[in-house]
Each structure stands twice: as structure tokens, then as C-alpha cells.
Design a protein around this nucleic acid. Structure first.
Lengths: 131, 131
DNA sequence: CCTTCCAGTATCTAATGGGAACCAACATCC
DNA sequence: GGATGTTGGTTCCCATTAGATACTGGAAGG
């Protein structure tokens, strides 16, 4: 690697990874599987309001990225188990920090939103130029 | 608060925060402003391929969430400076861990993708039932 | 016999993102 | 003095996407 990866370059592969994280369903699947291995419809019930389409789609790309294992059992009807790979586990831990942030600071965010919404009519104070 | 916030509940406010992080442009703006205060078009040049529409839209919601400060200077033409709030700085640090993950593990992800793409025709080994 | 369950796929529509044009008021270039 | 570029946006239109719904097909339960 000649230069350090730059997520601001749209062609940089780190951007792809960032886009994967920038997928709410992927995040919710990762933190679900962090707790334990789950089957398709288990995940569906766990993650409220996700459609079957988005679940299978997101799982497929997570599997492609080597973050999730898909294991098929030849039962009738067929059983499919999803679990995190070691790589996926390192990511889910990082992502876990984000959910922790959300739980910790949700109150401050809500307050800020209230202030913003009621203060919309406030006049903009003209400030002196910066230079 | 009676119960612990549950990001799997679509109505839970932590889910809103998670959705905000699940916005690639928001992430890129946060890590840009982590380095220094920037003006509108500075950000636009920094973050390749972002449209003016998405930039102003994302900045607006980041401001509403109390993560970003917007400061207007009465110059001609008007000058607008964007910076992180203290709250925004705590988030950007958490998000920074994600970009670090991306930079560190991008190689493994790329390898997994290659394996997946070429091994698509491989037959699925029938496994014994789990129970 | 009808419904439910398993793990998805196919199809249609509603929401969203991106591209380009446009704004006003000035500064600079030729 | 007319064209161009700069500031920070907004508005419109279209393409992509997400979400809702329906369907598969065999087996078990009532």
C-alpha cells in the first residue's frame, strides 16, 4: 500500500466499509448476532420492522464481506443459522461502542432537538467577520 | 426512564441516533469537523462527491441534534462556519474508532469478497440437523 | 381442510438520493 | 462593461432504492 487509505476518496475501499456501517440494518444485525447465533426468522422477530427482503439482502452482503457465517442444515423445512465470524466479532464490538454512545447521550440529543425546533423563529445575530 | 433503551424497538429514541450514524454523509462530516472548523464549501471540497443538497441537509440535522454549531458572519458574500459541539466531539471520537476499524480490516474484507464471488458455484454441503 | 411455520424470492409502489439549474450581491478578469 | 467566479444555499426532476405485499412448497398442528 503506497498511501494511507482516505475515506474521503469515493473510490477508496475504506469508503465501502464505511458505507456498510452506514447501514442501519447491518448494525442491528451485527449487535443481534453478537449475543448469540440466530436463525432467519429469529432475527426477523428480534429486529422489529425489518422486511424479509432487507434482512436476506443485508445478511447476504454481510456474508460476502466475511462478517457473518451462513450454515444450512438439511432439515425439513430447511434450517439456516447465522453467526458472527471472528472478523465480524471485532466489528460488532466497535459498533457496540456506538450503541453505548446512543444510550448515554440520547437525552442531550433530545434536548438539543427541542431547543432547535422552538427557537426556529429566533433572529440570526449578525456577527463580525472572522478575518 | 423505566426500562433500558432498546435499539430494536423502532420507536425507541436510541434508534434515531443509530439512524443518524447510519448516514454515511453524517459520518464523513463528523470526522472532517473533528480536525478543524470548516466552511460550507470547504466541506464540499473535502468530501468528494457529496452534493450541495445532501451537505446542507445533513448539516441541518446534525445542528438540530446538537452535534454541530452553525455560525454566520455578515460578510459579503456571507460566511458560514461549521464546528463540532462538545457533544459532537464525543460522538466523532467514537465514530473515529469505526474508520480505524475500516482501515485495519479492509484487506480481510476484500479477501472475503473475492472468496465469496469465485466460490459461488460451490455446492452446499448438507449438514446434519442441529437438534 | 385450513392455517402456520421454515427461508427466502418476485413484484409493485412509495420514499429517498443525486444532478443540475437557479438565487442575490459583490469581486475580479479581460 | 460584460463575462465569470465566489459565497451558502434552495428547488426541481429523475433514477435508484427501500418497504409492503404476495407467493413458493413441504410438513406439522388443530
Amino acid at each position: 500500500m503506497l498511501h494511507r487509505p482516505d475515506p474521503f476518496d469515493a473510490k477508496c475501499p475504506t469508503r465501502q466499509v464505511l458505507d456498510r456501517i452506514g447501514d442501519r440494518w447491518a448494525v442491528l444485525i451485527l449487535i443481534s448476532l453478537e449475543q448469540r447465533t440466530m436463525r432467519f426468522n429469529e432475527l426477523r422477530r428480534r429486529i422489529e420492522a425489518i422486511s424479509q427482503k432487507m434482512l436476506s439482502q443485508t445478511l447476504k452482503s454481510l456474508e460476502r464481506d466475511g462478517l457473518v457465517n451462513r450454515k444450512v442444515f438439511a432439515t425439513v423445512p430447511v434450517t439456516v443459522e447465522y453467526s458472527l465470524t471472528p472478523l465480524g466479532r471485532t466489528l460488532s464490538q466497535t459498533v457496540h461502542a456506538l450503541t453505548l454512545w446512543a444510550e448515554t447521550h440520547i437525552g442531550e440529543v433530545a434536548q438539543a432537538q427541542q431547543r432547535y425546533d422552538q427557537g426556529e423563529a429566533a433572529p440570526e445575530t449578525a456577527t463580525t467577520p472572522p478575518r
